[in-house]
Structures are given as structure tokens and as C-alpha cells.
Design a protein around this nucleic acid. Structure first.
Lengths: 142, 142
DNA sequence: GTAAGTGCAAACAGTTTGCATGACG
DNA sequence: CGTCATGCAAACTGTTTGCACTTAC
């Protein structure tokens, strides 16, 4: 956890971004609040540390982290957008039924499926090591 | 197509809802615009038929159709919500790894996965006859 | 005729943005 | 000390709602 945060800060610096107390607090909050959280939730948590951090800064920082490819936004039915760290995301496979080629895709894509199956069916899906079948870009192009 | 629309209207009437020209136009539009469409897209199309139908009515009708379980909303990354007819949706299976019990779930859940794999990888997934594995409600409760 | 549906405009929620001020490096 | 980040408030987008009016049944 501390490591991840140090990693975040380090990477920010490496890309010439400035390190501000606001950003540090927001990063730490995202690290602590595991799973999918909304901007508003981050804001609420962040305000406990420092009440003078604005919601706009939270949004701007989230945007920054997205550009850095460190978090991913997901839309889970609700009106609000959720965010999650990318670090732990596993990969799945896309298998082409025509040429047999296999490519990978991120586990993020299953966020909505997972949460809805949990909410609507009480079913806890194991999405590790999934394979989806279909037709790849190259084969479709012909 | 005409059949589906007749079905919609019939079902509306059966539930004691009124049939208005606005609703007829909106239904027909949803039928014609296959796939996932936004309220705004429906509105634009509907206005070509009758320019005096308001966006509010489109939203109200969409809400109505959701209550009737005839369309499903989906959130595909964009800011706007997409809607699709439920009629063609196939079913998939949830297989419990502990008790072996199998339950069904709707293909709608894959909307986001499908569209993102198409957009991001150019991959056309075949989501028919899918099975997902995990732990069912009953087994989790223990 | 009466309950339900409509249009309009105003309200609303979530997010973004312009600008003056403040602070990192 | 220059540049970039912040806070504030106002703008913006997608959606919902209150209300007077209209219409289906």
C-alpha cells in the first residue's frame, strides 16, 4: 500500500508532474478505499483529512490518474462514475474461432457484469482465467 | 417489427396504459433503430416524424418501457445512457462450483463487455451459450 | 367527464471550466 | 520567480419534475 503510493508519487514526478499535499491525500485515499469508489466518496474521505480540498481538485486528480493509466473509470448502472486502481487487474483471453489467435483484455470489462450478478443473483462470479470466443479484427476485415 | 410494435401497444393496453400518438411514434422509433440508442437519438428521430414531441416525453416513455421490462438501460462508458429492446436477449448460465446448481442470467449484462471489446480490440465476441463459474447465493450464505 | 399524458420551463445531479490566487520546484 | 495546481463559483450536460393544459378512453 505504502509502496503503491510511493510508486504513484514517483511516477508522477518522473513525468514532471508536481506533488501537492492535495494529490498526496487523494492518492492515499484511493489506495485505502479499495474497490470501486466514486468521486464523491473520495471527496468525503479526503475532507476528513483536510476540509479545504475541493471537489474540483478531486475530479482533476482523477483525470490525471486516468491519463497515467493508473485508474480506470467504470459505469455501474448508477449515475455516478466509479474508479478503481488498475494495479491488481488480471487479464483474460479473446480466442478467435477462425484463426485461433489469442489476445488479452483487462478484467475491468467485467466490473459491471460482476457487480450486477452479485446484486441481482447473489452470485459471486470467478472471473479469473476467462476466455471469450469470437472473431478477431483481422479475420473480420476479410 | 410491426409485430413487435403491435405487441408493445397491446401489452400497454392490457396494463391499462393509454395509447397516445407520441408513444406510438416513440415505440416505432425504438423498434426501427436497432441496437443501443440514447434518449437523444430517439428524440432526434422522433422529431422527424413530429417536431412537437418533447424530450421529456421521450424520457417518460423510456421509463415506462423499463417498468414494462421491454427495454433495458445500459451504460457504455459515454455520459449518456443507452437503451435496447429486451426481446432478442438470450440467456447464459451461472454454474456454482460448490453445489453444481445452474441458474440463468440475461445477455444484457454483456452489453458493455461486448461493445468495449469491439471498440477497443475490434473483436466480435460470440456471447451465445456462455457459462460463468463461481459461488451461488445459497453456498455463500453458509 | 376524469384520470392520465403532454409540453414547457425550471430544477436537479454529476462533472467541467475560467479565472484570480497560491504554492511547488 | 515562473509555471503549474488550487479554490471558488459559474457553466454545462443529461435527466427529472411541477404545473397548467390537453387528450384518450
Amino acid at each position: 500500500m505504502g509502496q503503491t503510493q510511493a510508486g504513484l508519487i514517483e511516477e508522477l514526478r518522473a513525468r514532471g508532474m508536481r506533488m501537492t499535499p492535495q494529490r498526496a491525500i487523494i492518492f492515499e485515499t484511493i489506495n485505502q478505499l479499495e474497490g470501486h469508489i466514486t468521486a464523491e466518496e473520495i471527496f468525503a474521505q479526503v475532507q476528513k483529512v483536510n476540509a479545504y480540498i475541493s471537489l474540483a481538485t478531486v475530479y482533476r486528480t482523477l483525470e490525471l490518474l486516468q491519463e497515467f493509466d493508473l485508474i480506470t473509470p467504470t459505469n455501474l448502472g448508477d449515475s455516478q462514475t466509479c474508479f478503481a486502481l488498475k494495479e491488481h487487474c488480471c487479464h483474460h483471453h479473446l480466442v478467435c474461432l477462425q484463426c485461433g489467435n489469442i489476445e488479452e483484455f483487462s478484467d475491468d470489462l467485467f466490473d459491471l457484469v460482476r457487480s450486477r450478478l452479485e446484486d441481482e443473483h447473489g452470485f459471486q462470479v470467478r472471473t479469473d482465467h476467462m476466455s471469450l470466443f469470437g472473431v478477431c479484427k483481422a479475420c473480420r476485415g476479410e
